[in-house]
Design a protein around this nucleic acid. Sequence first.
DNA 1: GACTGGATGCTAGCACTGCTAGACAATCGA
DNA 2: TCGATTGTCTAGCAGTGCTAGCATCCAGTC
Lengths: 192, 192
Amino acid sequence: MPVQERKQRERVERERLIVATARELAEQQGWDAVTTRRLAERIEYSQPVLYSHFRGKREIIGAVALEGAAEMAAALRATASATDGPHARVTALARAYLGFAERNPAVYDAMFQLDGGLAFADEDTPEPLKDAFAALLETLGEVAGDGVQPGLFTEVFWAALHGLTTLTRAGRLPREDTERGVELLVDRLAVA
Amino acid sequence: MPVQERKQRERVERERLIVATARELAEQQGWDAVTTRRLAERIEYSQPVLYSHFRGKREIIGAVALEGAAEMAAALRATASATDGPHARVTALARAYLGFAERNPAVYDAMFQLDGGLAFADEDTPEPLKDAFAALLETLGEVAGDGVQPGLFTEVFWAALHGLTTLTRAGRLPREDTERGVELLVDRLAVA
DNA sequence: GACTGGATGCTAGCACTGCTAGACAATCGA
DNA sequence: TCGATTGTCTAGCAGTGCTAGCATCCAGTC
């Protein structure tokens, strides 16, 4: 039944369109501007069509978050593998992380600030999220130091980076302090 | 004209009631539950009364944030002054910070996650916010180490604490890792 | 080739949100 | 006692996420 296959393909394609459009709209005008009406209008379908793909707006945010997690993992790995030496690698990783958040604020928010209905730190955490954490762990685990679990070290380092971006983006920290902040963080936290 | 004085007093009192009620409702049921209608009902006035005190919901959140900042500053100073030795003091400070966020999640969100329309890292930042940062600085400045500006050090340490709480509260980090995370943070970041 | 049943997408509408215009009543100064 | 001012309320607007129920269209059957 090639007809049903075609329909299935079109459905998958439309779902991609929804996620991509939501992401685009969020990056352009912020998540507040991503309403079901506007989103429906942009994909040139009526509102209820969204609900035949996703349970609700939250699930759309979740889909954007997963897409973002996969991209971030790839970006972090690319950076790490292109840098030699543990210390330099950690610095590059941190910059890559902050750079990703800075370039994709809406996606970053979908991943870590908004409720996308995703499980975390849990066995049924979606694969892309676990993988993004794994990408951090691969580089950070090297510099955890003796007697410190790589997982815990990664969590703490990650939390510091997360705090740095969110506070900076929210205007709570001056932007020009980020770079020196990263240096301080790497110098003190990472064991040579 | 004592009549006007009484009215003025009542107005101030009602404004306090609004802020306290918003805070209470937010802590009980989350900020999503704090709608202008529900808030008006709880203070036993009609909705428009809220707008005679505040420009909008955002300003109410801002008022809760300021109240929270003052409390947090006091709590941090109390902890710091009750502990001897820089290292122990920093540890106690970090625990106090995380404890405050854990006990007052809605207030913490008003301060750092939600938009309360407040200026930050700026000359016209409200006094309570500057003072909360100052309270951190007083203790953290001692352990910044040579060649590191106390202000920058405080920002980075604060960012780490902020990341730790928000990620933990959002279910992104396991709660049982917090304590070891704090120890790691203090051991590595603070210079003896 | 006409018919039918099920899938598909639409219109219309619900209950809610933040916010405001305009009517009304209470209170004040003269 | 009267007019003006102040304070509060009712009612309503435009927007939100989400859904019931109706049209339409098209694949598969006779």
